[in-house]
Design a binder for these strands. Structure first.
Lengths: 223, 223
DNA sequence: CCTCCCTGATACCTCCGATGTATCCGGCCA
DNA sequence: TGGCCGGATACATCGGAGGTATCAGGGAGG
């Protein structure tokens, strides 16, 4: 195995074993390189790779630190990976989202509090009578993100966040090509919100399923 | 932004835009470095980072290639990230798996063919009367992987594969500490298989839920 | 006495050039 | 024809030099 890969494994080992804790500072490049038995150049490759997936946080002039290792942070890297997928696999991502999103919405129905519900209502009302496509997509993303965030499972939340990336483009196209998609989407949002207010987990789950499935159906017929 | 990060973005852009296709070979280090306007050393950091998450495949003495970009390959990187999570977030991962696995099992009930069902049966029968913990865990992983693989959704399959990593340790502990876990697990496996043979999606979903939930419950009571 | 600016130390950033090593391919020999 | 061998190619690794961002501490000014 290459020395750089060894270094990646060793640093990973130090973190997993607990020798390095979240927020800890690593020895400076030259020291760590000497400690691991490789050149600074090769060590930098290892650090850069771990930095890309948010394991390490490098700050010039300061030092290199272990990140918080929060699920949210680590799964952020997922969206980077997801960006590389071509359109023909978008349907598979959407199918997974269709499984997760209804479950998350149902979970949220039991945990979301009144303040959050009011905020969601205000958010929907804030949309003008003729919103732009960009506004609509942003609102849609925030609406679902807030609900999933109330599910109480940060892994689930981050995962859905990452998976929603590739469907965003699809939503834009849909807004551009399908006229009644806007009003239908807003209606579905209000129905989901209503189900959450009623603490009706099954209704919330069903409306979320309908919501994702409509995008899926449209996309399937288009490709 | 640092030149290395710029290089990462540029290479990503070349792939996403289609200028570089899966399997394509990149220009050699020195040429690509000149093309992107940075040193070979800095370029190597970018390439190494993209190599860690399976976007690029570097072969010494040959060249650097774009991988197939299959969802399976890219989500392999997920398990690397998941390894960094501490035990206190295992429950959240397990909760996500509890959502996905039943859905995948239900999907498989409609698609799995007789040969695959026979293979699963043979696999369960192959376990001796007193299997070791390692054998049991390996068998358990393979059993679920094969079923999820029959769901027809490779993204779902890879995702579950990645998420199952951290629960593996839990399963080992369980096998070590809970006496009747072995026979109960095997019984649940047979019931899942029976539901698949009957093409009974709802029964398959329920047995899969029971299966994951039992691990979740045990883990919750232990931590 | 407190605040602001400057300066030095520290640590990462970027580059260059050289050497080692694995792979591929074409020519040579049996 | 088939296998062996050496050159060409491209990545792997190294050591050092100069640049830049950050932080902490000291001194001038209010």
């Amino acid at each position: 195995m290459a020395v750089t890969d060894e270094a990646i494994e060793k640093i990973k080992g130090m973190i997993v074993s607990g020798a390095l804790r979240p927020g800890d500072r690593l020895p400076k490049e030259s020291e760590l390189a000497a400690e691991l038995g490789l050149s600074r150049n090769s060590l930098r490759e290892a650090v850069r790779a771990l930095s890309l997936i948010r394991i390490l946080d490098v700050r010039q002039g300061d030092g290199t630190y272990v990140t918080s290792l929060d699920p949210q942070l680590l799964l952020e890297a997922l969206s980077f990976v997801v960006d590389f997928h071509r359109d023909d696999t978008v349907l598979e991502f959407l199918a997974v989202r269709r499984i997760l999103e209804p479950a998350a919405t149902a979970m949220a129905s039991a945990l979301i509090d009144d303040d959050q519900l009011d905020a969601l209502s205000a958010q929907l009302d804030a949309l003008g009578p003729a919103p732009s496509v960009e506004e609509l997509v942003a609102c849609d993303l925030k609406f679902h993100r807030d609900i999933v965030g109330a599910s109480g499972n940060s892994v689930l939340c981050s995962l859905l966040d990452g998976l929603s990336g590739p469907t965003t483009r699809a939503r834009v196209w849909r807004g551009l090509t399908q006229e009644d998609a806007v009003s239908r989407t807003l209606h579905e949002h209000r129905m989901i919100l209503g189900a959450l207010r009623d603490r009706d987990a099954e209704a919330a789950r069903s409306w979320a399923t309908v919501h994702v499935a409509s995008v899926e159906q449209w996309l399937r017929s288009t490709l």
